[in-house]
């Protein structure tokens, strides 16, 4: 069986989790040319409930469309971090938004304050998801940064391209700083 890479993005409704999943899938599938499957939590809650999006990436046709054991877990709030950490692969990568996740279950967690960065540097909390995507791609190399940028710009509302490009850069920079141990 071919290579199979699983990403789970999680947080609360309104944090842009599903949009982040769609952008990631589009970057990997349409722009990087891989096979992708993107699924998401689906329920009656519109805002504030638990939100989850999964992206499975492969070099061959994907059978089971959902994540079995995620290689990467992004947790944008405490509740989702607690709920999904147990599903992560033993060698998997946990990335948390330290703005909201105060208790990390493992010392290996990568904690970056995505929402804080969005607020402070971009003056728009709603782009925290794009900041997180930039960091995620830099940390895991799951998609190329060029593809990610193309996918972001194709999906975001017209007139917000600059804001989102900056958000992506902020995420990339935050990840680079983390990797340099700063």
């Amino acid at each position: 069986m071919g290579y199979r890479y699983e990403v789970r993005l999680s947080g609360s409704g309104g944090q842009g989790i599903i949009m982040a999943g769609i952008i990631l899938a589009e970057a990997a599938g349409v722009y990087d040319g891989k096979y992708v499957c993107q699924t998401q939590s689906y329920g009656p809650e519109a805002r504030g409930g638990a939100s989850k999006a999964e992206v499975v990436i492969s070099d061959e046709e994907i059978d089971y469309p959902k994540a079995i054991k995620p290689d990467v877990l992004l947790a944008m709030n405490q509740k989702s971090c607690d709920a999904y950490f147990f599903d992560l692969k033993p060698e998997g990568t946990l990335v948390v938004d330290s703005t909201f996740v105060k208790q990390t279950p493992t010392t290996r967690a990568i904690a970056i304050p995505f929402t804080q960065i969005a607020r402070a540097e971009l003056k728009k909390e709603m782009v925290a998801n794009i900041v997180a995507l930039g960091a995620l791609a830099t940390l895991t190399k799951v998609v190329s940064l060029g593809s990610l940028e193309a996918a972001v710009l194709a999906r975001v509302p017209a007139g917000t391209e600059d804001l989102n490009r900056k958000a992506l850069e902020a995420g990339i920079n935050a990840a680079k700083l983390y990797m340099q141990g700063l």
Binding site: I22, E26, Y35, C37, Q38, P65
Partner: peptide, 10 residues
């Protein structure tokens, strides 16, 4: 079904 209907694929 709900899974097929909502799964996004390239």
């Amino acid at each position: 079904d709900e899974v097929v209907g909502h799964t996004r694929e390239k």
